[in-house]
């Protein structure tokens, strides 16, 4: 049986792991390559590296880090942040990334999704969507959640699927950093309306939140950062409890 995935997210700035609380106030949480290997050992199913400074500062020097990670890591990993062209993706995949995630660049030029899926295959194209619930409507936001758009989350998600995305990584800006649980209602709707895997992101605070996002939110995978980085939740404990709740996980 296909299992639900647990994905630690490593936010990267200047080659170091950081974690933003609501994307502001960064704290240092270690060396990415070492942390990646440790997570693989602890039972993480996959990792995401997000260069959070990239969208603003146009940093495209992730290539070296990707190569270092690929050399060590025996589980899949996704790289995101500031990726805006076929050439960017080509370098990252050649250096050993399994997937790339694009966000603002896809909103600015949606054809990028088609170009990437045609050249590299849908399986390596993750489209990240940051959204916020404003007066009952989920609106897509850009630049790490700072810039609102008129795009409706569900319309955009459907377009992204049609253009060839292999997965959607949905972060609720309302939940991110709160540790009050994932945006399960919106997640369940995404999962029902789309036929590609959905990764839940933003709001993980305890094990019950993961159980809810798989059972109520119908998510295929759940991503979190600080609860793992600061050892508030051990992946082995998390998976044991999910399994006893009847959720298929790899142990």
């Amino acid at each position: 049986m296909l299992t639900k995935r647990i994905i630690p997210c490593l936010d990267i700035k200047n080659g170091r792991t950081v974690k933003g609380v609501n994307f502001i106030d960064l704290r240092d949480a270690g060396d990415p390559v070492e942390l990646a290997a440790a997570y693989a050992e602890k039972g993480a199913d996959e990792l995401v590296f997000l260069d959070i400074s990239a969208t603003e500062e146009k940093r495209k020097t992730l290539a070296k880090l990707v190569l270092d990670v690929a050399e060590q890591l025996n589980i899949p990993f996704t790289v995101g942040g500031g990726i805006s062209s076929v050439e960017d993706v080509d370098i990252l995949l050649k250096n050993g990334a399994d997937k790339v995630s694009i966000n603002s660049s896809a909103v600015k030029r949606p054809e990028l999704i088609n170009e990437l899926s045609e050249k590299f295959g849908s399986q390596c194209v993750v489209v990240a969507i940051d959204a916020k619930n404003i007066d009952g409507k989920w609106k897509v936001h850009l630049v790490g959640g700072k810039v609102p758009t008129d795009l409706d989350l569900f319309d955009w998600a459907k377009e992204v699927e049609q253009r060839g995305a292999g997965e959607i990584l949905f972060t609720s800006m309302d939940h991110d950093g709160t540790k009050n649980g994932f945006a399960d209602e919106a997640l369940a709707r995404l999962s029902e309306e789309l036929n590609i895997p959905i990764i839940a992101s933003g709001g993980a605070g305890n094990i019950q939140h993961f159980q809810n996002t798989f059972q109520i939110g119908k998510a295929d995978a759940a991503l979190a950062a600080s609860v793992f980085h600061f050892k508030e939740i051990e992946i082995s404990d998390l998976k044991t409890q999910l399994k006893s709740a009847g959720i298929p996980v790899r142990i």
């Binding site: 049986m1 296909l2 299992t3 995935r5 399986q123 292999g166 036929n195 590609i196 895997p197 295929d220």
Partner: peptide
């Protein structure tokens, strides 16, 4: 089923 299949299976 969701397509692509992505993840760990037996």
């Amino acid at each position: 089923v969701k397509v692509p299949q992505i993840g760990w299976n037996q």
